[in-house]
C-alpha cells in the first residue's frame, strides 16, 4: 500500500517522542551548563605537572630530562633546564625546569608526553573550559599554571594515580633500603666520611 512505509516511520517517531518522557535510553542529552554528565575517569585533554607535598616549586617531580619535549609530535612543550640542582621530595639532588611552557593551542592531547615520561611527572588534566581571547598569552601555560598537586591527580584519575603512587612508593622504599644497607655497612666499618644523604630522610 502506498504510504505504508511513511506511516510506519511516523509511528516510530511517536514512540520515541513519548518514550523520551519515561525511558532514560531514549533521552540521553543533558542541559549542559546547568547539568553535567559525570566525569569519565580516563578522560584527558591537556597535560599538567604533578608535584608532591604542599610546595609546588619544591615538590615538582619533573627533573627536566626533556624527553617529552623531544617526543611531543606537534612540538608544543618548551623546557629550559636548570644549571644547578635542587633536592627533590625524597631529598635527592635533581635538575629542575626553570621554564616549562606548554602551548595548548598547539597541543593535540595525544598523551605521548605522559607515556614517555619515566618519572610520572606529567599527566593529563580534565579541565576543558579554558577558552581565551589571547592566542599567545592565554593559551600558553607556564610552569605555575601547569603545576598541580598529587592530591588533585588522585581526585581526577583515582585508579591510575593509585597505581602510580604505589609504584613510586615501592621505588622509594627500595632506594631507602639500599641507603640503609649502605649506612649499616659504613657503620660496621668506621669511616671518616659522613653517610650519604640521598634518600635517607624526607
Amino acid at each position: 500500500m502506498l504510504g505504508e512505509g511513511i506511516l510506519k516511520g511516523l509511528t516510530e517517531t511517536a514512540r520515541n517522542f513519548l518514550g523520551s518522557y519515561v525511558n532514560k535510553d531514549r533521552l540521553t542529552t543533558v542541559q549542559f551548563p546547568e547539568e553535567r554528565l559525570p566525569q569519565i575517569e580516563a578522560t584527558r585533554d591537556f597535560p599538567f605537572l604533578v608535584y608532591d607535598g604542599s610546595d609546588w616549586q619544591a615538590g615538582l617531580r619533573c627533573v627536566s630530562c626533556q624527553i617529552c619535549e623531544k617526543e611531543c609530535p606537534p612540538k608544543c612543550i618548551y623546557i629550559e633546564k636548570s644549571k644547578d640542582k635542587k633536592p627533590d621530595v625524597t631529598g635527592k639532588l635533581q635538575f629542575y625546569p626553570t621554564t616549562f611552557d606548554i602551548d595548548i593551542s598547539v597541543c593535540m592531547s595525544c598523551q605521548i608526553c605522559v607515556e614517555v615520561c619515566p618519572f610520572d611527572a606529567i599527566k593529563m588534566n580534565v579541565e576543558f573550559e579554558m577558552s581565551s581571547e589571547d592566542r599567545f598569552g592565554g593559551l600558553l601555560l607556564r610552569k605555575e599554571q601547569l603545576a598541580k598537586s598529587n592530591e588533585y591527580y588522585n581526585k581526577i584519575h583515582p585508579t591510575e594515580a593509585a597505581a602510580v603512587d604505589a609504584a613510586l612508593a615501592e621505588e622509594r622504599a627500595k632506594v631507602e633500603a639500599k641507603a640503609r644497607q649502605a649506612a649499616e655497612a659504613k657503620a660496621a666499618t668506621p669511616a671518616p666520611v659522613a653517610a650519604p644523604v640521598a634518600g635517607e630522610t624526607k
Binding site: G5, I6, K8, G9, E12
Partner: peptide, 14 residues
C-alpha cells in the same frame, strides 16, 4: 530494527 521500520520501506526514500 527501529531504524529499519522508520525508513527502510519508506516510499520517499526508495
Amino acid at each position: 530494527d527501529e531504524f529499519e521500520s522508520l525508513l527502510m520501506s519508506n516510499e520517499i526514500l526508495m
